[in-house]
Amino acid sequence: MLLIPCPYCGDRPEIEFRGGGEAHIARPSDPQTIDDQAWAEFLFYRTNPKGLMAERWNHAHGCQRWFNALRDTVSDRILESYKMGEKPIGGGRA
């Protein structure tokens, strides 16, 4: 089980959280004009990286807030978490 650093509550066990998948996928800003392939890519296509991944988490059984985390999908080690709208510092947590 992962120990997930909620930026609001601190380290909590994974069972308190709901995974939200890949982070930073922006909804198309001009939905009237984009074609079906662009919609498919927004809705269904994912990077699914082997290595560093930015993903969303919801602290469902805690503060209930959404945030992002940077995790290595090979070791499952979480390098850092950051609030919505923020950018990862990229150097890992001290």
Binding site: M1, L2, E14, I15, R18, G19, G21, E22, N48, P49, K50, M53, E55, R71, T73, V74, S75, D76
Partner: peptide, 13 residues
């Protein structure tokens, strides 16, 4: 498990 991983292991829960 609920998260993307290539680790071939998961949580005991």
């Amino acid at each position: 498990d609920q998260y993307i991983s290539y680790s071939q292991q998961g949580g005991l829960h």
